[in-house]
Design a protein around this nucleic acid. Structure first.
Length: 261
DNA sequence: AATTTTCACAACCGCCACGCC
DNA sequence: AGGCGTGGCGGTTGTGAAAAT
């Protein structure tokens, strides 16, 4: 016998797609009267031709009172970034620290605002490694008559312009006998020391983790610490390195214990 | 002005964990 | 002990609006 994973078996004829105002009204009225939970029976009892799962999602993400509408504020963005650096894609966990925001909203926000940047910084890291290797090779072989030119490419100028916060270089390795053989681009902060030497200052994390007693959390915040490491300094260090990775060492984005505006 | 690209958001899907019987 | 229903989570997709070309 096939076990139904998760929700109830999809019934033929159940409505899908966007909710109508009538459906919203029915669901709201029913939940206000009977409370949340028992979503399958909510669907039936409220006269909705929807799956329980769909009802729950609609309520949680859209109809539930107290939900904020509109754009994520810079403060909220800062919290999202910091918490994501700590917990990764634990959207529901992150959402608990943003009253009025849903996991879905945060997830969507992250995807549209940071995925692109994350991808970009991965590229940067690869390039950085390549350039270091080449520079090393040149040091090891000082007699080599290759020429290393450092300049900013149009592409990177554009990227830098968009992000407004990166320094970029292209290194052109020219073998004098064979002409130009390689061109690489590296993007990195003005000074890595600028990133790494920043002393983590008091932040909201201090408030949550100390004031709220979250160091002793038994819930998943605790479990989500890599290696179950429950020590403030190490978590801040994790956040630091996570930031460094996310933004490719972009000094203006490196976590310094505060918000990023 | 028309077309293409990007963004923002809503909704669905598959999976897992847990409790009840 | 194991089947089943339910609640919840994270990933993905679809779509309309806005911005860019």
């Amino acid at each position: 016998m096939v076990r139904m994973m998760g929700w109830e078996a999809p019934k033929i004829g159940l409505r899908k797609g966007p909710w109508t105002p009538q459906e919203d009204m029915l669901l709201t009225e029913y939940v206000n009267l009977h409370g949340e939970g028992r979503w399958s029976s909510v669907a039936k009892s409220a006269g909705l031709n929807r799956s329980g799962k769909s009802c729950r999602l609609r309520w949680v993400n859209y109809l539930r009172p107290g939900l904020k509408r509109g754009h994520i504020t810079p403060q909220e963005e800062g919290i999202i970034i910091e918490l994501h650096a700590l917990w990764g894609n634990k959207w529901s966990t992150i959402a608990r620290y943003l009253p009025g925001r849903t996991d879905n909203e945060i997830k969507n926000y992250w995807r549209t605002h940071f995925k692109k940047r994350e991808k970009f910084s991965l590229k940067q890291q690869k390039r950085k490694a390549q350039i270091l290797k080449l520079k090393q090779q040149q040091q090891e072989k000082p007699d080599r008559k290759d020429e290393i030119k450092i300049h900013q490419t149009e592409e990177e100028e554009e990227e830098a312009g968009v992000n407004g916060k990166v320094n970029s270089e292209a290194v052109e390795i020219t073998d004098q006998s064979q002409g130009k053989v390689q061109e690489m681009v590296s993007v990195y902060p003005i000074s890595e020391d600028q990133c790494l030497s920043q002393e983590p200052a008091a932040s909201w994390i201090d408030q949550y983790l100390v004031d709220e007693g979250l160091w002793n959390l038994e819930d998943d915040h605790h479990r989500h610490q890599p290696g179950n490491c429950c020590n403030k300094t190490s978590i801040q260090n994790q956040a630091n390195s996570a930031y460094y990775n996310y933004f490719g060492g972009d000094a203006s984005y490196v976590y310094n214990g505060g918000y990023i505006f």
